[in-house]
Design a protein around this nucleic acid. Structure first.
Lengths: 226, 226
DNA sequence: ATTCGACGTATTTTCGAGATTTTGTTGAAA
DNA sequence: TTTCAACAAAATCTCGAAAATACGTCGAAT
């Protein structure tokens, strides 16, 4: 008993992903199957297969004959990720609004309520590591619910993937909670716009919410030249 | 000499993907590593790893303890894929236009010229299987070039992935070439709009080009309710 | 005729060993 | 001191065998 962990291959993937997203490995560090084997309680082959899978998700870099690495922190990459995330989240939110019904509004309100509760708790207490994880899950659930009514499974999956890459880039750096009050207001504004079924408003507020991670502003669409 | 194929694991992935996209496996058919081993000239383990990777790309379905399958033809899935592809291609084309320079215009013109050449050839001759493959590559290159100047590697990668899933759904059905004359015109119109740097026009024409694969029209964005 | 269970076959999953390649170290020559 | 080659150590890649699981067949009981 105790530390039993006869982990199947899928638990290994999830466990590794969780470790990556919690920042338990430094950016750029090497991921050696033979080393990770012990802490994961499985063979090196299983770890290798899991890392392979994670590399296709963009959470791990793979170079043939040179093994696996945690992607470096890269301000340009974060810019790129953010821009794509804005695109997906705008589209997803708008389509969710078009399909809006009471059930979705209830789910979204509930998700925001939970998130808001955590956020106000964080402002009072010392930012524990555990509380941070709680906040991440709350934030993820809110954004996922926001686009979750869009009717497109592919869009939802893509958003989850890009959100994870976003979190991986942010880990260890966003833990200062400086921006949290602003964040809190922005989440509320997004909720209000969504409930008001104001598509343009939601898009504007999503851009405002994520915009601080952009290196340079996204150029506006210009009018057609004559 | 001859039938040498000391295939590394990456060639196996590419080879399998090519086979999938050429329609060499029927939709819904089972993909057994031990069977594919002989035709690919490698071990079953290598095939398994390749199939695993392809499953994360959406080109293969994986069910634990039940092996791998080619995704079924699904009109709803094609709708979903098309809708996401439209989103990516619109965004990518617009950003490409904003970064437009002579070099990109040259690449796009060249890609269209090649595609146009193939298309006119197809209209004259009997639609061979080989010509069809040629056309697919030409079409892919044109659309990839269209968005290739957007400056976002992630967007380009996502487009490639979704384009492949699109092709996999279309394979064996779109080979009638009935729509080819229309297609030909639409490609030209997209090129013209791109060279004119008309973002709205490009978006409209992309929607018109891909719209026939949608089960139902994409709802327009409505005005904000008072 | 149908349902259910037991058994044999086929497939999937896991694992560690051997071959190959990269990486790090030492030492001699310029 | 720097450069380079040879050697040693470590990591990666591939593979087939063994264990676990699912699938299909046959036969008996209802």
């Amino acid at each position: 008993m105790g530390l039993v962990q006869d982990s199947t291959a899928w638990d290994v993937v999830d466990r590794l992903r969780a470790a990556l997203l919690d920042g338990r490995f430094a950016h750029g560090s090497k991921l050696k199957p033979d080393t990770l084997r012990t802490s994961l309680g499985c063979s090196a082959s299983a770890v290798r297969e899991a890392l392979f899978r994670l590399s296709t998700e963009g959470l791990v870099q793979f170079h043939p004959q040179r093994g696996f690495r945690v992607p470096q922190r890269d301000i340009e990459l974060l810019h790129d990720i953010t821009q794509v995330r804005i695109m997906i989240e705008e589209q997803g939110a708008c389509r969710s609004i078009r399909n809006a019904d009471v059930a979705w509004e209830a789910r979204l309100t509930a998700a925001h309520h939970k998130l808001s509760h955590i956020e106000s708790r964080v402002q009072r207490t010392e930012p524990t590591d555990e509380v941070f994880q709680l906040w991440v899950r709350g934030e993820q659930e809110f954004h996922q619910t926001l686009i979750g009514n869009c009717g497109s499974q592919i869009l939802v999956d893509m958003h989850l993937a890009i959100y994870r890459r976003f979190r991986q880039q942010m880990v260890t750096s966003d833990r200062d909670f400086t921006h949290l009050p602003v964040n809190r207001d922005q989440h509320l504004e997004i909720l209000d716009a969504a409930l008001a079924r104001d598509e343009d408003g939601v898009c504007r507020r999503i851009r405002a919410h994520l915009g601080r991670h952009l290196v340079r502003p996204i150029p506006e669409r210009e009018a057609v030249p004559a």
